[in-house]
């Protein structure tokens, strides 16, 4: 069975090893017996996002975020249609901010986001940097997510968005309310780099599983040998809590 992963703006929004998430989705899909295909889509390229199964978008520096802002805004309609059609979305850091309602810069300028997440972000100082451990119940069981955050923005969630998890170590969305990331419908937003998915294989499989459910596929994801991944996950927990 084919799985199509759309990598949005791989040439602009790809900071701190974010492409590792694409590598992880691709590899794990193959190991699960699926046939993954990655479609890179950049500024000015038309693409019906409903025709893919998973949309991924990474972080970027301010300069890069500005470069794609216009194009991303133009994609509101197709993006919204894809989300209504239950296409899974994973947005990291800068992409997470852009999916919210707005981003207010340090100078007080308000930049509109797509508003697909009920969230907003204010610039802040100092930057929130370091290892993070999050407890998440996204797939119904109590899981941990590990990663590395590095963001100036403080993100807050409105009632329509739920946090991805609770911060056990690190700062999370804003360093104040103990929340990290956002989940709304099929969209997952988070500040965690790492890359995120290789060290949190359960989340990679969750995304692949969502794609299969949407397609009404009978294919079940089996268990893989994740010894190395789980060791890295545990080492990251020790490092963050140490």
């Amino acid at each position: 069975m084919d799985i199509t992963i759309c990598h949005l703006y791989p040439d602009f929004m790809n900071l701190y090893g974010d492409r590792g998430n694409i590598i992880a989705l691709q590899r794990r899909a193959s190991w699960h017996g699926l046939h993954p295909r990655v479609v890179p889509i950049s500024v000015g390229e038309e693409y019906d996002l409903r025709s893919c199964d998973i949309i991924f978008m990474g972080g970027g520096q301010d300069r890069e975020q500005r470069a794609i802002a216009r194009d991303f805004d133009d994609r509101y309609r197709v993006m919204n249609e894809a989300v209504q059609d239950r296409v899974a979305v994973l947005a990291i850091c800068g992409a997470y901010q852009l999916l919210g309602r707005y981003y207010r810069t340090a100078a007080g300028e308000k930049l509109n986001g797509l508003g697909l997440l009920d969230s907003w972000t204010d610039a802040g100082a100092p930057r929130l940097v370091g290892n993070v451990v999050v407890e998440s119940r996204l797939d119904g069981t109590r899981r941990t997510l590990v990663g590395f955050e590095n963001h100036g923005g403080r993100t807050y969630l409105g009632p329509a968005a739920a946090p991805l998890g609770r911060v056990l170590a690190g700062h999370g969305n804003n360093g104040v309310d103990g929340q990290e990331g956002a989940v709304q419908g099929t969209i997952i937003g988070t500040y965690l780099h790492g890359a995120l998915l290789p060290k949190n294989p359960w989340l990679a499989d969750y995304l692949l599983g969502q794609a299969l459910i949407r397609r009404g596929a009978r294919h079940q994801l089996g268990a893989l040998d994740d010894t190395l991944e789980v060791s890295a996950h545990q080492a990251a927990i020790r490092r963050a809590r140490g």
């Binding site: 590598i23 992880a24 290789p198 190395l228 991944e229 890295a232 080492a235």
Partner: peptide, 20 residues
């Protein structure tokens, strides 16, 4: 200190876990 991270990177690069 992050040898495990390196091992995972090598696995996802396509090396056999048996060679790591």
């Amino acid at each position: 200190r992050r040898g495990e991270d390196m091992a995972v990177r090598l696995k996802y690069a396509g090396l056999s876990p048996a060679a790591i």
